[in-house]
Simulated assay, not measured.
Amino acid sequence: MTSFPGSPTMLAPDRPPPLQGYKLQQPTESDAVAALHRVFGAERAAERWGTACRAAGLVPGMVFGAPLLEQVVKALATQGGATATVARSIEIRMRTYARLASQATLMAGGQR
Rank of each mutant, 00 (worst) to 15 (best):
Y22M: 02
L76G: 07
S30Y: 08
A108H: 02
G81H: 10
A77Y: 01
A46S: 15
G50A: 13
R88A: 11
L24M: 12
M94Y: 07
T83Q: 01
R38G: 09
S89E: 12
R48Q: 14
T9L: 10
P5F: 07
P8M: 09
V86D: 04
T2M: 11
A12K: 03
L58M: 15
R95L: 10
T105Y: 06
A77H: 03
A45R: 05
A56M: 05
G41I: 09
L76T: 03
L100I: 13
G81D: 14
Y22I: 01
G61R: 02
E70N: 04
A87G: 07
F40L: 15
R99A: 11
A108L: 08
P17S: 08
A42W: 09
T9H: 03
Q103K: 11
L106W: 06
V33Q: 15
A55N: 03
R88D: 09
G81A: 10
E43Y: 14
S3P: 00
A46T: 06
Q25V: 12
F40V: 06
I92C: 01
K74H: 12
L24Q: 12
A87I: 02
R95P: 00
A66I: 13
S89T: 08
V73G: 03
R54C: 02
I92D: 11
R44H: 14
M62C: 10
A82W: 04
W49L: 03
M94D: 04
A75H: 00
T51S: 15
I90V: 15
G65D: 13
A55E: 01
T96F: 01
Q103F: 12
